[in-house]
Amino acid sequence: MIKLGELRHDWTKEELLEIYNKPLLELIYEAATVHRSWHQPDEIQISTLLSVKTGGCPEDCSYCGQAARYHTNIKVQSLLPTDTVLQHAKKAKERGASRFCMAAAWREVRDNRDFDRIIDMVKGVNEMGLEVCCTLGMLTEDQAKRLQEAGLYAYNHNIDTSEEYYNSIISTRQFNSRMNTIQNVRKAGLSICSGGIIGLGETPEDRMGMLRTLANMEKHPDSVPINALARVKGTPLENLPKVDTWDMVRMVATARIAMPASMVRLSAGRIEMSEIEQAWCFMAGANSIFTGERETLLVTPNPGVTEDMEMLQNLGLRPMVSKKTAACSNN
C-alpha cells in the first residue's frame, strides 16, 4: 500500500501508474493533502527566465525550435551583453521574482570567453540577492564548480522523457549524458532543477518512467518542471495535438506525491492554459511558475508578469520570498 507523504527513492513504474490513473478528484485531493503537509499552500515561487543566447543549437531535439537544422521563425541571437542581462534581472526582482534563470542554446558548455561572460552574469545577479539559475546544456564537474563559486544557486537540466522513449525524440546525445550532467551538478553542491515534457507522443508508461527516474534519484531534484509540448512550427512535432489539461494535472499530482519536498514547476504550455486550468494544477501541488516579459523569455512564451500577478491575487496566492532574498532584506 502506498503511504502518502513519505519521502521515498524506490518507486516502481507500476506504483506511479496506479497513482496517475486514480479517479481524478481523488488524485487531486491526495496530492493537495501531501502538498499541504510539506509546503505553504498559498505560496508560489516566481522564476523569471531569460534566453541569453538563442538558436543555432547543433542538437536535434524534435520539440525544439532552437535546433539549427529546423526552419523555424526563431531568430538566432548571440550571447547578450552582461549589462543587458543584469538590467533584466533587476527588473525581474522589482516585479516579484525570487529566482532568475539564464538559458543558452548550447549543446554543452565550452571553456571560452562566452563561459567567462556567463560567470560574470552569475556574479552580478547573485549580488542582487536573487537565486541564480542557469541552463546551458551539458557541463563538466569543474565547470559546475566554477558556476557554484560564482554564486550559482541552481542548474536546470531536464531529462525530457523516459529513458526508453528518449531516442525517439533526440539522436544527437544519449540519455546517460543527461544523467552525467546532473551528477556533475550535484557534486558541485548546486541545487538541481530537472523535469520533463509531456505531449511528445509518449505513453503514460513513458511519463511514469520519466518520473520514476527523477523520484528514485539519491536526492530528489529540488525543482521539477512539468512542461507541455509547445508546438513550434518547423519542428518534427509541430502537428501533435495540444496536451490535455487533465493530463497536466495528473502529471503535477503524481510528481507531487512521488517527490513531496520538491518544488513542482508549471512550465512550458502555460500560455495555452486558462486561469481555471492553472488553478487545478496549483490545487494538485504545483507551487512554482516561470513568468516575465513575453519578448524576453525563451522561444515558447509564457504569460506576462501583470497577468500572473492578477491570477495569483484572484486565487488567494502570493509570491514566495526566497530565504536568500529575505536574508538580503534583513541586512
Rank of each mutant, 00 (worst) to 15 (best):
Ile182Tyr: 00
Thr181Asn: 04
Ser223Arg: 02
Thr213Ile: 11
Arg178Ser: 00
Arg186Glu: 14
Lys242Tyr: 11
Leu240Thr: 06
Lys187Asp: 14
Val185Asp: 00
Glu164Thr: 14
Gly209Ala: 09
Lys187Ser: 14
Ile226Trp: 04
Ser177Asn: 15
His157Val: 08
Asn176Asp: 14
Ser177Ile: 07
Arg186Thr: 15
Leu229Asp: 02
Ser223Asn: 13
Ser223Lys: 06
Ile169Cys: 04
Val224Gly: 02
Ser171Gly: 12
Ala215Gly: 03
Ser194Gly: 04
Val185Ala: 06
Lys219Tyr: 08
Tyr153Asp: 11
Asn167Asp: 14
Ile192Arg: 02
Ile192His: 01
Met217Asp: 06
Ile197Phe: 03
Ile198Cys: 04
Leu200Tyr: 06
Arg231Thr: 13
Ile169His: 03
Leu152Lys: 03
Leu200Asp: 04
Leu211Trp: 02
Ala150Leu: 09
His220Leu: 06
Pro204Val: 08
Arg146Trp: 07
Ser194Met: 04
Ala150Val: 14
Glu163Gly: 03
Gly196Val: 05
Ile226Val: 15
Asn239Phe: 10
Gly201Phe: 05
Asn158Trp: 05
Gly195Met: 06
Asn156Val: 07
Asn239Ser: 15
Glu218Asp: 15
Asn239Leu: 13
Glu164Ile: 13
Thr235Pro: 01
Leu229Thr: 03
Ala154Pro: 03
Gly201Ser: 09
Asp244Gly: 06
Pro225Val: 08
Phe175Trp: 11
Ile159Cys: 05
Glu164Leu: 15
Pro225Ala: 14
Gly234Leu: 10
Glu205Cys: 06
Ile226Phe: 01
Thr203Ile: 10
Ile226Thr: 01
Asn176Lys: 12
Lys233Cys: 09
Ser162Asn: 10
Gly199Pro: 06
Gln148Ser: 14
Val185Leu: 02
Ile198Met: 00
Arg178Gly: 01
Val243Cys: 08
Ala230Thr: 07
Val243Arg: 01
Asn180Trp: 07
Gly234Met: 08
Met217Ala: 10
Glu238Phe: 07
Val185Met: 05
Gly209Pro: 02
Gly209His: 04
Met208Pro: 01
Ala188Gly: 12
Ser191Gln: 11
Ile192Tyr: 00
Glu238Arg: 04
Lys242Gln: 15
Thr172Pro: 08
Ser191Met: 13
Thr161Tyr: 05
Asn216Val: 12
Ser194Trp: 04
Gly199Arg: 03
Arg212Thr: 14
Gln148Val: 05
Arg146Tyr: 09
Asn158Met: 11
Val185Thr: 08
Thr245Leu: 04
Trp246Thr: 14
Pro204Leu: 10
Asn184His: 14
Met248Gln: 01
Thr181Ser: 07
Asn227Glu: 05
Asn216Ala: 10
Asn180Phe: 08
Asn184Leu: 09
Thr172Asp: 13
Glu149Tyr: 01
Ala215Phe: 07
Met210Arg: 02
Ala154His: 05
Thr203Lys: 12
Leu190Asn: 00
Gln183Arg: 15
Thr213Gln: 11
Tyr165Ile: 02
Ser194Val: 03
Ser168Lys: 14
Thr203Met: 12
Met208Ile: 14
Leu237Lys: 03
Asp206Ile: 00
Leu152Gln: 02
Arg146Met: 13
Arg146Lys: 15
Asn184Met: 10
Leu214Ser: 02
Ser171Lys: 12
Arg173Phe: 15
Ala150Pro: 05
Arg207His: 09
Asn158Thr: 13
Glu218Lys: 15
Arg178Asp: 10
Phe175Met: 12
Met210Val: 12
Tyr155Phe: 13
